[in-house]
Design a protein around this nucleic acid. Structure first.
Lengths: 246, 246
DNA sequence: CGCCCAGTTGAGACATCTCAAGGCGCGTGG
DNA sequence: CCACGCGCCTTGAGATGTCTCAACTGGGCG
């Protein structure tokens, strides 16, 4: 989770290859700088892929699909999730502009990816990527680094789900949001996802998330100037609540 | 989690390089075949490393340590865990003979590894492994496959911690144990870890794990002929309880 | 033989879930 | 421009699953 920008109102040229330049909607926001670090993560994708769009709640790919493409998000947000036999869903993570999807599996997609709102992305066939990987050692290096990062994120998430209270989970989520958007005390951070998504990410119910956010507002740690936006009033007090891994 | 064998009583030659042969203690058990599939996973390690031993609860490495070595387990079991600032611990997974450790991070260890009982392993410097990876594309391929597998396991674990009941969690754990040891109805499977470890793995308390296991025995799904051993009486009924991802 | 550690079991506390009602913002159509 | 409906969020009250604290048991090992 990181800055984010779901407006994507600027017109986008629908030709490939796509330039490294950020989409117009990504510029001119307070969160821009952090939202695209590193600015050209896994840059091969940009030059090999073609541009595509997804509408709200549209699936990019589903659990069990053949993994024939990878994606790099240009604008919007994507949720990654697993669904159990009886319909319970667990959100594994969110992906934001600059992030790469579907390079963390082999043959078959292990999870489902859905657009949270409107999404623009670069799509590229795995075959082309594999060729590029075979040719350039540094691309392999990038892939490994991405996978290490993902393992690390998943491990941290495991701690959240395995041994934190509702308050700690919500605080962790907000702290993550704040950190990735480079927020300070007084910064407003847009929340791109619904309460239900936050709940499914944190292993809680939507009501518990809502109550916990209200409690944080009552304590003066955060505020909600608008819906879908959080005002960080005290980052320190937020961090105190997270019970971070040492 | 997979078969397992913590006896490791056979004498082991303490010289390097180590042969691909399994330690004596690993032979002659009903669980052998499954416990070492594939038999020579990431075989480079065997030829490059030196043999080492660890005693019960000894740390192989800790969160924050410089990741200068990788390990391949020959006998015994290792638990991987993260500890929060206030001492809560979350077990990320267990590693058994044939499994490789510490290739899933960069620079600094993201987690702690502890010997559950006596452990013998091959240790090899990351530098040598990196060299081997640079030279042989197939080794790089193996590394990617290992990382994909780890990502997949972590994702599944996330579902367990995020949206399963105590009964489902315990059943998942047992089903995992049974599957990896190739158990059928009537098979006895050794449990190498304590109730506390199971609890920390499943995000429960030790008491809840104990109660749930007792409930499963009452229902006739499993039995405990000895402590630290589970008799699978009905694999089907166990699987019904797991609420697997679809 | 007896200690000690790991596991079991019980009873009450508590966090979170479930079910239900109400409110707010927003787009749509009159 | 307002009324309405709809989706999303908030809040309440009671149900419940898991945790906490505590006592007891059994097996292994000195």
């Amino acid at each position: 989770m990181r800055g984010l920008n779901m407006l994507s109102t600027g017109q986008i040229v629908r030709t490939a290859p796509v330039s490294h330049q950020l989409p117009p909607a990504a510029r001119g926001t307070a969160l821009r700088a952090q939202a695209f670090t590193p600015p050209t993560r896994f840059a091969v994708l940009d030059s090999l892929g073609t541009l595509c769009r997804f509408t709200k709640n549209e699936m990019l790919f589903a659990q069990g699909d053949e993994a024939k493409s990878a994606y790099k998000i240009l604008s919007g947000a994507v949720r990654l999730l697993l669904v159990t036999g009886d319909g319970r869903r667990q959100i594994i993570g969110f992906r934001l502009p600059g992030d790469v999807l579907a390079l963390d599996c082999e043959g078959v997609c292990t999870m489902t990816a859905e657009a949270v709102g409107s999404v623009t992305a670069v799509r590229c066939s795995r075959a082309r990527i594999d060729r590029s990987i075979a040719e350039r050692p540094q691309v392999r290096e990038q892939l490994s680094r991405m996978l290490w990062q993902e393992v690390r994120d998943l491990q941290r998430h495991l701690v959240v789900l395995g041994c934190q209270t509702a308050m700690e989970r919500v605080a962790s989520f907000l702290a993550q949001l704040a950190r990735r958007s480079g927020a300070r005390d007084g910064s407003a951070v847009e929340i791109h996802v619904s309460r239900k998504d936050i709940a499914d990410y944190l292993g809680l119910t939507l009501e518990t998330v809502s109550r916990t956010l209200s409690e944080l507002r009552r304590r003066g740690v955060i505020d909600f100037p608008k819906s879908r936006e959080v005002l960080i009033k005290s980052l320190d007090r937020l961090r105190e609540l997270t019970a971070d891994a040492s």
